[in-house]
């Protein structure tokens, strides 16, 4: 027998040699793997099930909804639900609006947050700790606390009383996009504190030598930032941008409060049920209005329409969302 013979022994042989330990260990490992698999499968199903459910419901006719024998596959396949939901939401125009608003807001917010995050990460200046504590405060204070005052502030907008002197009264910025863009340009938009925090965390990890080398070679502050630092920070900026875009897309609070009169998908979605009822009573002449089941069906269809673009983005940019966040190493 040669030296390596032990490796070629059968499983039972090795088990006998180890006094039953190997069998026990393999069985335990195997059982653990099975349990883990079942658990993960269950939880994945839990998360995905509502989406699958919505998809199957969205293709059903109304009578399918009440048929107890139909669970997942519609018997009377129809795309009418989609047509109705699109009609209620004024889909084409609303979609365009939403894309425009989400894209510009996200670009603006991330551009400014990158500047601020860089400032916090790479410069020493007096009161830096104080200002950073303010960033943390912005993360923690729920925007609803200041929303009443902000709402009135924009309703009667004025810059230090100048406009009042000229025209006699402030301008009503309610219903226009200006307030929200103003807030976005000054880091007070949706979850902007969080973006500043993440970007700062990233810039802090870039070695100081890189920056110093650039200074020695004659780069100014701004040039160093644009040419040296920005290219390095692409992953974190992309992921913040994606977050900003997606959260803006589904946001209800800021849209309702500061973007009032523009039709956005998130706003339209919350009105779909009402509109269905209205449509059935006044257009289709059904005095009873919409039943609960049918309302849910249309709402589910509308929800699918709203999240479909996000789903596509997520499929392609999944790495951008998850990886850069986990690599940035959030710490307190």
């Amino acid at each position: 027998m040669t030296k390596g013979a032990g490796k070629r022994d059968g499983f039972w042989e090795r088990n006998r040699k180890s006094g039953g330990y190997l069998l026990k260990k393999t069985t335990l490992n195997f059982a653990y793997k099975i349990i883990r698999m079942v658990l993960l499968f269950g939880m994945c199903f839990l998360i995905l099930q509502p989406i699958f459910n919505k998809i199957s419901i969205s293709f059903m006719e109304e009578r399918d909804l009440y048929d107890a024998t139909i669970i997942a596959v519609p018997a009377h396949f129809t795309t009418d639900n989609y047509k109705l939901a699109m009609q209620f939401m004024d889909f084409g125009k609303t979609m365009l609006n939403t894309i425009l608003v989400s894209l510009t807001v996200a670009l603006l917010q991330i551009a400014i947050c990158t500047l601020v995050g860089y400032g916090f990460a790479r410069f020493q200046f007096p009161l830096k700790k104080f200002w950073f504590a303010c960033v943390i405060l912005v993360i923690i204070i729920p925007p609803q606390t200041v929303s009443t005052s902000l709402y009135l502030h924009f309703r009667y907008f004025d810059i230090a009383g100048i406009l009042k002197l000229l025209t006699g009264e402030g301008i009503n910025l309610r219903g226009s996009v200006v307030p929200y863009y103003l807030m976005s340009a000054t880091c007070m938009g949706l979850k902007n504190g969080l973006y500043i925090y993440m970007i700062r965390q990233f810039f802090r990890n870039i070695p100081k030598e890189l920056e110093e080398a650039a200074y020695v070679d004659g780069c100014g502050t701004l040039k160093t930032f644009v040419r040296i630092m920005l290219p390095d920070a692409t992953p974190i900026i992309t992921s913040c941008f994606l977050f900003s875009f997606v959260w803006q897309w589904t946001d209800g609070f800021y849209s309702k409060t500061f973007l009032g009169n523009i039709n956005l998908l998130s706003m339209q979605l919350s009105r779909v049920a009402e509109q269905l009822n209205h449509y059935l009573i006044y257009v289709m002449r059904q005095p009873a209005g919409a039943t609960i089941g049918y309302t849910n069906c249309i709402v589910a269809t509308a929800t699918l329409l709203v999240i479909l673009p996000l789903l596509i983005i997520y499929l392609f940019a999944q790495k951008g969302f998850v990886e850069s966040l986990s690599s940035s190493g959030l710490k307190m």
Partner: peptide
């Protein structure tokens, strides 16, 4: 540094 974080200060 202050110039970089200016937008935040103004907004805050």
């Amino acid at each position: 540094g202050y110039l970089f974080i200016m937008p935040f200060i103004v907004g805050f």
